[in-house]
Nucleic acid binder design. Sequence first.
DNA 1: GCCAGTATGGCACTGAGTGATTCCCCTTGG
DNA 2: CCAAGGGGAATCACTCAGTGCCATACTGGC
Lengths: 238, 238
Amino acid sequence: MTDGVASTGRGRGGMSEQRRRRVRLEISREAARLFWAQGVDGTSGDQIAEAVGLSTRTIWRHFRSKESCAEPIVAQSVEWELATLRSWPPHRSLEEHFATEAKRLVSEISPSEQADAGLGVKMIRLAETEPALRTAWLMACDQVERELAAVIATRLELEPDDLQVRLHAAAAAAALRVINEYVGAGLLDGTDPRKLGDENFAFIADAVRTATGGAVGDPVRAEEAPAEPDGSAAGRRK
Amino acid sequence: MTDGVASTGRGRGGMSEQRRRRVRLEISREAARLFWAQGVDGTSGDQIAEAVGLSTRTIWRHFRSKESCAEPIVAQSVEWELATLRSWPPHRSLEEHFATEAKRLVSEISPSEQADAGLGVKMIRLAETEPALRTAWLMACDQVERELAAVIATRLELEPDDLQVRLHAAAAAAALRVINEYVGAGLLDGTDPRKLGDENFAFIADAVRTATGGAVGDPVRAEEAPAEPDGSAAGRRK
DNA sequence: GCCAGTATGGCACTGAGTGATTCCCCTTGG
DNA sequence: CCAAGGGGAATCACTCAGTGCCATACTGGC
């Protein structure tokens, strides 16, 4: 996951850590643009370097492989979902939380972030035909799965490496991946620009609920020992 | 997915198509052995070629990349699950079908197939730390997901590219992946050799049922329109 | 202005993967 | 039994991703 050189620790010295992310994003932007325009195989490391105004050597200092140049832009496109999941308070339902967070987001998003999101969608789309990019996409989904495991673990008051938690996380992450692919493909195929309304959040939440057998999605009653967590809030689909 | 040269079509000529698979498997065996013994980075294409007794060039004729040399052995290790899924009759439950198919399997399995299975498990394990191999593993899971979509589509009498079907397939495939990783890790960590009894199949089936919100796993009543498929046989977990 | 420490450039080099050509072996037909 | 032919494999030369190594430019603290 951590791509470039090991640590820098961030301890002392300078502006690393945040600056590094900016550089990687910058490279990723140009790489994604080129990948989309001429394909992955049709794009050379030298081209990326030239496009971003750095030496080829420096590109490889920041990314372990050509395909991984696309990772930051892909990761960023799921970052807001991740952040939303991380900040999901126990006492709220998934759809509620998504809806309010989404409202907060639309007012804060900048044009450049919007452009990045567009590139991310394109990369996800490209990943369906370019095996090299599929890796980057699946890796990002893998990351979502891990974070989701942590979120679910706290909600269910279990360990993140508990088998049941891992199963739920994997299923939910897979559902989110499919929805991302579906929505992204729809957007690129011209399906109107702004129809990602509240209805979609209910759909997402329901997909997660279904994928986890109803175990994840509803508010969690704090301070109450779940002696028999069954039959509480299952089947709510359609 | 199809790795080597394009077609050969299989039309006329010779023994391709089946022989090709044998050669690829042979290469994959040696590659997996070397990967496990000395790591992926520590293994060169030349080494693989020498181990299998072919020229390096020929290796690249059969595989597009070094890591993909592991794919056949990984794919084969999930092939029986895939086959089992494909032959899942509508009127049976998943645990029933798995159990009977497993019984049929243990009597038919050959020593070499057993060795291959062992190698496959090792590759899956390696995939947890070697990003290059993780790709191969995730690709195999991707394949499982696609086939699963077909199976689920027929059971639910929907199209394979229906969103709901894709969601269910993705969630179920993810659950199967986690279980495979879990069981494989257990086996390699010395957890006894033969305890994959009926109990496990019930567990697998339940995981699939949970991941699909109860929509997949139970017998399907043929010839009856599922007006309200809900609430029929949900929550059956432990 | 000087002194770390770090980011970058340049260059040579390893190794993956490809293309083109030749070679070998096996089949087929006379 | 031998000639023709075709397909797979070997060989060689080449491209390009990616690394190691060293020189250099930049940055922030004194």
